[in-house]
Design a binder for these strands. Structure first.
Lengths: 134, 134
DNA sequence: CTTGACCTTCCCATGATGGGAACCAATATG
DNA sequence: CATATTGGTTCCCATCATGGGAAGGTCAAG
C-alpha cells in the first residue's frame, strides 16, 4: 500500500546499506529522494528498483563510475546495446586480468609451499624465495 | 664502495618507492635507518636486503601485517618452517577465494555478453539482468 | 650566488564501505 | 503524560596501500 518507505526499509528491500544509500546520494549516483516534514528520506518503488539495479551491478564488480554510465543507459530508451556491451567487455577484461594476477601469485606460492617441509626446522623455500636465495 | 645510500638509491635498488620506504618506517615495518648530520636517511646493505624482501612479499600479495610476521620469522634463526608455511597456506586460500569470486563475476558477464547483439538497438540481456528481468 | 636536484615533514586523495558521535523525531510502554 | 526505545539526520574518522604535492632545508655545480 504505502508506496513510500524509509531508508531502512529501502536498505532491507535492496540489500544496499542505509549508509551506502546516503553515500550514493552524496556522490550524485542517485538523485535525492523526497523528504517528509521531519527531513526523513522517503523512497518510492522507482527508487527501490534503481537501488536494486545498483546492487546487482556492484555484485558483478562494476565500479561506481561504470554504474553511473550503466544507469544512464538503463534510463535511455534509445540506448544502443553496443554501448552496454562495450562496458561489460571492458569490465570482463579487467576481472580476468585481476583474477589471473591473483592466480599467478597463488601458483608461485603453491610451488614453494609444496617444497616446504612445514616442520620445526628453520629451512624453508618460501623464506628463501623472499630472501632471493631460492 | 659506499655501503650507505640515500633513500632514492634504496628505492631504485629495491623497486620500493621512497614514499613507501618512509611509510614502512612510520608504521614500524622497518626500523629507522641511520641519519647523516643533515637528517637524510642512509641505508646500508642489510636495509636494502630487507626492503627487497618486503617488495617480493608484496609482489606475492602478502598484506603488511603478514609481512611483519614474515620478517620476524626471517630474522629468527630458530623459526619453524611450519609457521612460515601456515602463513603462506592461509594466503593461498585467500588468493584462491578472491580469484574465484572475480572469475564467477566474469563468467556471469560473459554469458550475458554472449547473448547481447551489441548493435544500435536498445534490447540488451546485460541491462535486463541488472534490471532483474533477465 | 643562483640553480637545480635532492632531502625533510605534513596534509590530502584514492574506492567502497563501516563505525560512531551528537542530535532530532516518532512511537511504545509504564 | 513522561519516559524509553528506535530510527532517522549530519559529520567526522578509519580502513589498505599508495601517490601527489606543498613548504622548506641542504648540497653540488655552474
Amino acid at each position: 500500500m504505502n508506496e513510500f518507505v524509509t531508508i531502512r526499509d529501502a536498505a532491507m528491500a535492496t540489500g544496499v546499506s542505509a549508509k551506502m544509500i546516503r553515500h550514493y546520494e552524496s556522490i550524485g549516483l542517485i538523485s535525492p529522494p523526497t523528504r517528509t516534514q521531519n527531513r526523513y528520506r522517503h523512497y518510492n518503488q522507482r527508487d527501490i528498483h534503481e537501488l536494486g539495479f545498483i546492487r546487482r551491478a556492484r555484485d558483478l564488480g562494476f565500479s561506481i563510475e561504470d554504474i553511473r554510465h550503466l544507469l544512464a543507459l538503463w534510463r535511455d530508451r534509445s540506448r544502443s546495446s553496443a554501448e552496454v556491451k562495450a562496458i561489460a567487455l571492458r569490465h570482463i577484461a579487467e576481472l580476468d586480468e585481476k583474477a589471473a594476477a591473483l592466480q599467478a601469485m597463488s601458483e608461485t606460492l603453491k610451488h614453494l609451499a609444496a617444497n616446504c617441509q612445514g616442520d620445526n626446522r628453520p629451512d624453508c623455500p618460501i623464506i628463501d624465495a623472499l630472501d632471493r636465495l631460492g
